[in-house]
Amino acid sequence: MELTFYIAAAVAVLATIMVITRFNMIHALLYLVVSFLAVAVVFLTMGAPFMAALEVIVYAGAIVVLIIFVIMMLSLTREDVEQEKAWLQPKLWMGPALLSFVLLAELVYLLVIAEMPAAPAAGSYVDARAVGLALYGPYVLGVQLSGILLMAGIVGAYHLGRQKKKIIHRFLQQQEPQKERSAVL
């Protein structure tokens, strides 16, 4: 179990690095899916299968929407990928990589000096009931706040997506503007 955890964690980190270094955005998103799947496996090895399933359904499954956004809004071509390559020269990586490395060193240092919490016992098992009790117990405020946020998103999407009803008929079409004008008046 220990080994599967480390393999999954390594895959997650590698896939995430691949996400930020790809020039083609669809490929980057594919690596993001892999990263989420790896995190799901991490959950599974930590004894939380319900969370693992939700991770796949909600996160990994939703990247398809991002892919649609990329296709619809960016309309990528080979030239765009070349352009991206021209913009992202290797020397641009130097600064961020250096700074991140400092942070990484600090993180490793903290992990080394920290008291290792006992690894989750073999018996610790987070099932659907435990997740539900946690969500609707101590974290009920968070659930409701995210619900409100999503509701705002839905209302906004509805507003943006709303269209005036188009009547495709040569006689009715002429009446339509008049009605609208009277509504304005």
Binding site: V33, P49, V56, I57, A60, V64, A128
Partner: peptide, 18 residues
């Protein structure tokens, strides 16, 4: 015989959309 069998099925079908 997974405890989360049904969710596993749903997760796989959401992966199928890719």
């Amino acid at each position: 015989d997974l405890n989360i069998g049904l969710l596993f099925f749903l997760a796989m079908s959401s992966m199928g959309a890719y």
